[in-house]
Design a protein around this nucleic acid. Structure first.
Lengths: 204, 204
DNA sequence: GTCTATAGTCGGATAGAC
DNA sequence: GTCTATCCGACTATAGAC
């Protein structure tokens, strides 16, 4: 891992990308328990040994894959959240982004990778960092939208950002257990209602 | 599995209990990826084959263990939550219960088992059920405490109960990634502050 | 009910040919 | 960079002695 590509070998880069893609797909479809080098290689239709050549270990491939996904996700979310001017806007944008995330299995990948890295002193902090950036983004969005509302300081924006991150991880963990019973539409409806109420309360 | 104990063999029951205990301990210390029949047997100092004799498979042992833990947890939580008369009470009790849960690795066990069962059509719903009971308990507590506050209907109590369940699962997933950075004390401080604010708003 | 032993599979990881 | 072949440890699960 981390070779700083000597001559930017195009074949190598393409393979690396294929491996990362297949790693994400395997995490989503087989879960962390089923994500072996062999399973990843089958999903991406390449040789199992390539994972070790390019990333050194399955764990490092997972870290790289989650990192890649998180960065791409961040950019899209940042662009969308920057458009939101009010609290209600924010909730509406959040609903759309959550739909995207579900369609792409982004949160499933995160929960599975996180569960697999639990207690691991090396892998854990690395994966934590990939969510922390997103958490900060949410914090910033809340701060911006509530800038002129002093009463909103009852709950610090940073804590809100972290809690929202945790909430969506938990929601995904439950949704992947039993797709039937998960109901995020209802949650966003209520969030929107609450946002309206808070706005009326803060600046009447 | 499910033998309805022919003659209530005391040795058998003791062994079953030992296996369940060791299964929980292994889930907490090794995570779902490291929870194999061998690891469980080592943790509990018994023969690996006993797991298959008593439960049929490792997965079924995990289901039984989580079920057992959830029931014991429910009883303790129900007793404590019934004492809470106000919203602020509720938050204070919740903080204590959360400390207990962390000391006993209850939530770590849940997140790990849930992650392992993700996408499994048999295991998933069974494990989901063990949290659903707790979720209902929280819903009931909130309803009871806010009974005479019509304005609280902005967010349905049931949805609040489910969201709180999800939130704590997510918090644990993050906490197990990086113990250093998790900060639930701060969260409960803010929750208590918010509870005070809500109470003053609802019945002045 | 509990043990030993083992079959058979799958896993991470590497050596070496190409 | 990629492939084949392989080592070897760990896994689930069962058969059969006790």
């Amino acid at each position: 891992m981390a070779k700083a590509k000597r001559r930017s070998s195009s074949a190598g880069e393409a393979t690396r990308a294929k491996i990362l893609e297949a790693t994400l797909a395997t995490l989503a479809s087989e879960g962390i328990v089923g994500t072996s080098a062999r399973a990843i290689a089958t999903a991406g239709d390449f040789n199992q040994a390539l994972i070790f050549y390019h990333f050194g270990s399955v764990d490092d491939a997972i870290i790289a894959a989650v990192d890649r996904m998180s960065e791409a996700r961040m950019e899209r979310h940042r662009a969308a959240l920057d458009e939101a001017a009010t609290l209600v806007d924010l909730v509406r944008v959040a609903r759309e982004l959550h739909c995207d995330d579900q369609a792409n299995d982004n949160m499933t990948v995160l929960t599975q990778a996180f569960a697999g890295a639990a207690g691991d002193p090396v892998m854990g902090p690395k994966l934590y960092a990939s969510l922390e950036a997103w958490s900060s983004l949410v914090t910033d969005s809340i701060r911006r939208v509530l800038a002129d509302a002093p009463a909103a300081a009852i709950v610090p924006a940073e804590l809100l950002g972290q809690s929202i991150s945790a909430l969506f991880l938990g929601i995904e963990l439950l949704a992947d257990l039993d797709r039937e019973r998960a109901n995020t539409d209802q949650l966003f409806d209520s969030l929107e209602g609450a946002a309206v109420a808070v706005e009326q309360m803060l600046k009447p």
